[in-house]
């Protein structure tokens, strides 16, 4: 636990200093929201119904970039050897990297979500607490799988292609759950969102535990 916090603090400090991850993720997130909205060419009436899909498609595509960067950090100068040579449980490395990814993605969401509301005429303020819950659950679920596969993809050939190839099909349940829950929340609050929220919670728990247990096989040689 202490080790995980040390890794989180280290990642945040590097991010704070370079702002590389957040700025690339920020620009790509905004771009994707704009492009996806334009591609649909929505009328003022249909615009709000597109919001959940645009939001989560932009989130997933942007998030992959952010997570991939987090592991290139450990590859530079072979810092991973430093981590693995220390008396640290690989599960703690997973937890630390996961937490750092969740923070990075949350900052990205804080930009992308209001932007979606603005472009697609959705009143987010009225539903804010429920929407925050959906965003957080989607964020944690995405990060728990992406952290595992980000580490894996960083160590194989053709890694730029490999991460989306491996991750996107596995993320389908998360995407469906998040879009359905967001749609329900925007229409009527948490009550109608139970199906989507259930999928999100199950996804978070299953892949949080799986990542925790399987991470050692991905980083140890």
């Amino acid at each position: 636990m202490r080790d995980a916090l040390a890794i989180l603090a280290k990642d945040l400090r590097i991010e704070w200093r370079t702002r590389e991850g957040i700025s690339s993720v920020f620009v790509l997130g905004v771009l994707l929201v704009v492009v996806l909205t334009m591609a649909h060419d929505p009328s003022p009436e249909t615009a709000p119904t597109l919001a959940p899909g645009v939001l989560w498609a932009a989130f997933v595509l942007t998030g992959m970039l952010g997570v991939q960067r987090g592991f290139l950090l450990e590859r530079e100068n072979d810092c991973l050897a430093g981590l693995l040579g220390a008396p640290v449980d690989p599960a703690a490395i997973y937890a630390g990297k996961l937490a750092a990814n969740v923070v990075l993605l949350a900052v990205m969401q804080a930009v992308v979500v209001p932007l979606v509301g603005l472009f697609l005429h959705v009143d987010l303020a009225a539903r804010l607490p429920a929407l925050l819950l959906v965003c957080l659950l989607g964020n944690v679920g995405f990060a728990s799988l992406a952290t595992l596969f980000g580490a894996l993809a960083a160590r194989v050939r053709a890694r730029e292609v490999m991460l989306p190839l491996l991750l996107l099909p596995l993320l389908v349940p998360l995407l469906i759950g998040a879009v359905q829950a967001t749609r329900a929340v925007l229409v009527g609050g948490l009550a109608g969102a139970s199906g989507g929220l259930g999928v999100l919670v199950a996804f978070d728990v299953i892949f949080g535990v799986a990542g925790w247990l399987l991470f050692a096989y991905v980083v140890r040689d």
Partner: peptide, 8 residues
């Protein structure tokens, strides 16, 4: 998860 989510 896929089985449950596609029912939505």
């Amino acid at each position: 998860l896929i089985v449950v989510s596609v029912r939505l």
